[in-house]
């Protein structure tokens, strides 16, 4: 297995929020989804994932609920809250601006 790319803390938060924005999801699924969508480039380490989920829950961006998983097990599903949605939009806009800016710099030089 390739070495997971290190994720800046804020970036991981953004990825998680974006992922759970589609539908409520448990931790394992979040990691899988990020890996799949990024074409196996971004591998989220469990050691970073769960503290991040708990942090986001603590901050009120996401909320958790227990539900049945796809294989009929009890799993903790995380869903985006209203406040989380606003926060995500804000952060996405930030990210756009930042990456465009970096892209410009890289292209020009």
């Amino acid at each position: 297995m390739s070495k997971p790319t290190d994720l800046v803390q804020g970036t991981l938060d953004l990825l998680i929020l974006k992922t759970v924005a589609l539908e409520p999801m448990h931790g394992w699924a979040v990691a899988q989804r990020i890996r799949q969508v990024s074409g196996n480039v971004l591998q989220v380490n469990q050691g970073a994932l769960y503290p991040a989920l708990h942090r986001l829950e603590q901050q009120g961006w996401i909320q958790a609920e227990w539900g049945e998983s796809e294989n009929n097990r009890r799993a903790k599903y995380y869903a985006l809250t209203k406040a989380g949605k606003k926060y995500l939009q804000h952060e996405e806009a930030n990210w756009e601006r930042l990456s465009t800016a970096i892209g410009l710099v890289l292209k020009t030089v």
Binding site: H26, G27, W28, Q46, Y50, E57, Q58, Q59, G60, W66, S69, R73, R74, A75, K76, A83
Partner: peptide
């Protein structure tokens, strides 16, 4: 939001057993 996060904290502080069990279950599920 602060109300929620405070209630979360209280839950963690006073309903420790439940929270611990949930944490355990979540990781085991993974």
């Amino acid at each position: 939001r602060w109300l929620k996060s405070t209630s979360h904290r209280f839950r963690s502080l006073f309903r420790k057993n439940v929270v611990e069990r949930e944490l355990d279950q979540e990781l085991r599920f993974h």
